[in-house]
Every structure is written in structure tokens, then in C-alpha cells.
Design a protein around this nucleic acid. Sequence first.
DNA 1: TTCTCTATTGCAAGGAATTGCAGTAGCGAG
DNA 2: CTCGCTACTGCAATTCCTTGCAATAGAGAA
Lengths: 130, 130
Amino acid sequence: MRWTPQRRTVIEVLAASSGHVSSAELIERCRARDPQTIPSTVYRTLDALEQLGLVRHGHGADGREEFHVGPDTEHGHLYCADCGARSEIRAAEADALVTAFRAADGFEVDLAHVTVVGRCASCAARHAAG
Amino acid sequence: MRWTPQRRTVIEVLAASSGHVSSAELIERCRARDPQTIPSTVYRTLDALEQLGLVRHGHGADGREEFHVGPDTEHGHLYCADCGARSEIRAAEADALVTAFRAADGFEVDLAHVTVVGRCASCAARHAAG
DNA sequence: TTCTCTATTGCAAGGAATTGCAGTAGCGAG
DNA sequence: CTCGCTACTGCAATTCCTTGCAATAGAGAA
């Protein structure tokens, strides 16, 4: 793998972005460092990094790509369709999810890739009430 | 709600498409009936139909939109990242999943919206072996 | 039937993501 | 240090989806 200035930029930005980043955000931040940044290069760099296991991508509620920067515990996401709140899927739920599919189908869930959409507790309550 | 020719077209196409349709497919089929079909109209019609509960949308593995035509049992999707196989999430898994999130967070999962990505049984086996 | 109100349409512009291709420039070999 | 291979880059074109706006045409009222 070649160590090019463009890749350095992407990796520096990723390192500075703990947690999750959308591709658009990422490109924006790369441009802040180097206005010459070309989107396709960023996407291709991300692909390369993903093959190396340095980042993982998932899809947000709207289906757009989102990147998790490692080394992070693998986790999925919850998204409330009402209020837009986002949170991480915690160990207990993650376990239930992964185990259920493994037991039923032998299907190995890729947790990092999962975004579960629904209604968060407070929105569910509000909805039930009103 | 107004009963326009364009909506008639979309609904006819949906009725003829049992199960799942991607938006691109849908537009293509609408064009087959009426070459004048405009994508934005189709999208907006789908939004309207979704508000009426006649269709539900979810996101496929690649994050693109996908529509489920009712009246169908609510279900989510499994997608194998290796071989591309797709299947529906069955009642047992669905239950485990929905219950786990409700118990832990009070989060109400919108099953129709969920696509779980991972490796299907045979690909998981092949991967473990080779 | 005719009129009016406004939901809906068509179009054009815009943004996000992806791909093909020709040229550039890392980096290991000599 | 220089050369050559080819992994990368930059760009332009393409696809998919979304939004704003002016014009159109349903559908109920008169």
C-alpha cells in the first residue's frame, strides 16, 4: 500500500474524528486541510482502509454511509425516526440480536453494519399517550 | 387525496409487483406503462402512499431505498454480504429482536425498516473452513 | 355546468455516491 | 541515484435521489 499525501490527509482526519463520521463530513474536513481533496479519492481510500480493517462502514437511517473509526468495540446503531436521536446498540441487545440469528439460521450478523430504526422510549411514550 | 393518472400508474405497478421493489425498478416499470413518467413524481407518490400506510420503505444492504407492498406481514431483511443472498427475517428472530430492545431501552423497533447485513449460514461455513 | 382552491405535477438544478480512463508519482530493484 | 512498474490520483461522466418553483388540473361548492 502506498503512502500518499492524500491518504495521509484522510487518515489524519479520521484519527481526529473519534466515533462516527459520515462521508460528507469526512470530505468536508479533508478539504479543510487540503482544499484540493477529491471525493472519489476519499471514497477509494476509505475502501482501502476498510479492507485493512482500520475502519468499518455502516448505513445510517437514511441509508447514507457512515464510518466507524477503530479500534472501537464493535457496535450497531439505534435511530429514532421521530426525534432523530441516535444511540449505540448496547451489549445486551447486541447479544440478543446476534444470538437469535445465529441460532435460527446460522446467520452471522455484522453488527457494525446495522442501524435499527424505530421509536425511542420517550417518543414511543408520547405517541402512545397523544 | 387526488386521483391522478400518475398515481394510478404507480399504484398499478406496485400492485403488480408483489413483495419488494427498489425505487429504480419501480420507475423503470412505470416508464414501461407511461414513458412520460417523472422520477420525482414517483418518489412523491411513494411518500404519499407511505403516509397512508399502503407501502413501507426500508433500506437495502447498499442503503438504497426499497419498498414493501402491503398488506404483508411486517418483516425485516437479511442480506449476506458474501453471496448477496437475501431473505426475510422470520417471526422467531423478529420477536427476539423486538423484545430485547423493548426490554432494554423501551425502544420500539420498526421492523419493516431493518436490513441486517452479515454472512449467511453457508458462506459463514465456507469462510470458517477455507 | 362553471368556478375556485390548492394538491400535484413537470422541470431544472443540486448533492451524494460511483466508475472508467489517462496521466502521475510512490517505491522497490538494480 | 535512476528506472520502471503499477497503485493511485484527478477528472469527467453517470446514476440515484431530493428540492424549489411555477404551471396544471382534480374535486367539491355554487
